[in-house]
């Protein structure tokens, strides 16, 4: 049997979920005995291969048009899609901007912050257009497995991956089901 193909991506997020993935430490050696990581934000290839992967993992919420595109691409190319981390599951901390109009958020962020001098709101055709609200991934594409946490612990990530390697759909409960930074 060949290796299982896995691709990861990060959308509106802080990268902490990928850091937590790397916290599986030496288990990564065992992991790569069974898995081929086709693409990820922390390797050379950024997009999942067109022929598809077995498992797609998305971290981060949906906050702009490009992220909608990336989420759709990952969904189309993955048999199983995992929303990993609170932002991917619910929008997470990025949804704090949902309580304010978009213009107010941009003005506050780029012009009014105390450390900003002569700020301006970036505008360029290459920049992705922000969505009005940040959401979890499942408001854009269907998600198969939800793994909340800010970030999910390495043990929780390891649990989900190994369950999948064993051919089971992971059922989150006990120590592997935590929201936020509740590592207890």
């Amino acid at each position: 049997m060949g290796k299982i193909k896995v691709a990861t991506g990060w959308l509106e997020s802080c990268a902490g979920c990928h850091m937590s993935f790397l916290d599986i430490d030496e288990r990564i050696v065992e992991f790569f005995k069974h898995v081929e990581l086709t693409s990820s934000p922390i390797t050379d290839l950024k997009h999942p291969p067109i022929e598809g992967v077995d498992v797609g993992i998305l971290t981060g919420g949906i906050g702009n048009e490009d992220q909608i595109h990336e989420a759709k691409e990952m969904r189309e190319r993955s048999k199983i899609l995992i929303a990993l981390g609170d932002c991917a599951v619910t929008g997470g901390i990025c949804t704090m901007r949902n309580f304010f109009p978009l213009e107010e958020v941009l003005r506050r962020g780029y012009i009014e912050t105390e450390s900003t001098v002569d700020g301006e709101i970036p505008a360029h055709e290459d920049l992705a257009v922000l969505t009005d609200q940040v959401s979890g991934i499942d408001e854009v594409v269907p998600v198969d497995i939800y793994l909340p946490g800010c970030p999910p612990t390495a043990d929780a990530i390891w649990f989900v991956l190994t369950e999948l390697l064993e051919g089971r759909m992971p059922k989150l409960e006990g120590k592997v089901l935590k929201y936020g930074m509740d590592g207890g």
Binding site: D86, T90, T95, E173, L177, G180, D182
Partner: peptide, 19 residues
Amino acid sequence: HYCMYCQMSGDCELQDQAY
């Protein structure tokens, strides 16, 4: 009810029930 920036996370009865 985003737990990641709540001071009660870990001691919250709503969170406990959700778990």
